[in-house]
């Protein structure tokens, strides 16, 4: 997958970094991470999950049956974790440079 990642993709990967989540949980987590700015709709979310799965970044962790409904939980693959780590480091460096410059320093 090409970097830099688009914001929804970055947030989906970030949401899955802590623990596997099902679709509904992922939507809530992404909304919280973006402070309510980004609310994914299920059609968009599952399309993104398929794409991330095609790229080997996300996979189905397990399926649980709750109230007679099957819920699939998704998790990051090792490749997904590595990509998120790389992207986070890239963003961290960019933020560091910007912070230094705003403070009047050299970078």
């Amino acid at each position: 997958m090409k970097t830099p990642l688009q914001e929804p993709t970055f947030l989906i990967l970030t949401a899955l970094a802590r623990a596997p989540l099902h679709g509904y949980g992922l939507i809530l987590e992404v909304s919280e991470l973006s402070q309510g700015r980004l609310s994914l709709r299920p059609g968009t979310l599952y399309g993104s999950l398929d794409r991330l799965s095609d790229d080997g970044l996300v996979t189905v962790d397990r399926t649980e049956v709750v109230d007679g409904r099957a819920r699939k939980y998704y998790r990051l693959t090792d490749e997904g974790t590595e990509l998120l780590r790389t992207e986070t480091e890239r963003m961290r460096q960019a933020v560091q440079v910007a912070t230094l410059r705003l403070a009047g320093g050299f970078a």
């Binding site: 679709g23 509904y24 299920p42 059609g43 599952y46 409904r69 099957a70």
Partner: peptide, 23 residues
């Protein structure tokens, strides 16, 4: 299909009877 519909139903507002146009 079932997974997508379940997620929509989970997200639906109380008393919602129809899919929203954006959905």
């Amino acid at each position: 299909g079932a997974e997508i519909v379940d997620t929509y139903v989970d997200l639906a507002a109380t008393g919602q009877r129809r899919p929203r146009p954006a959905d």
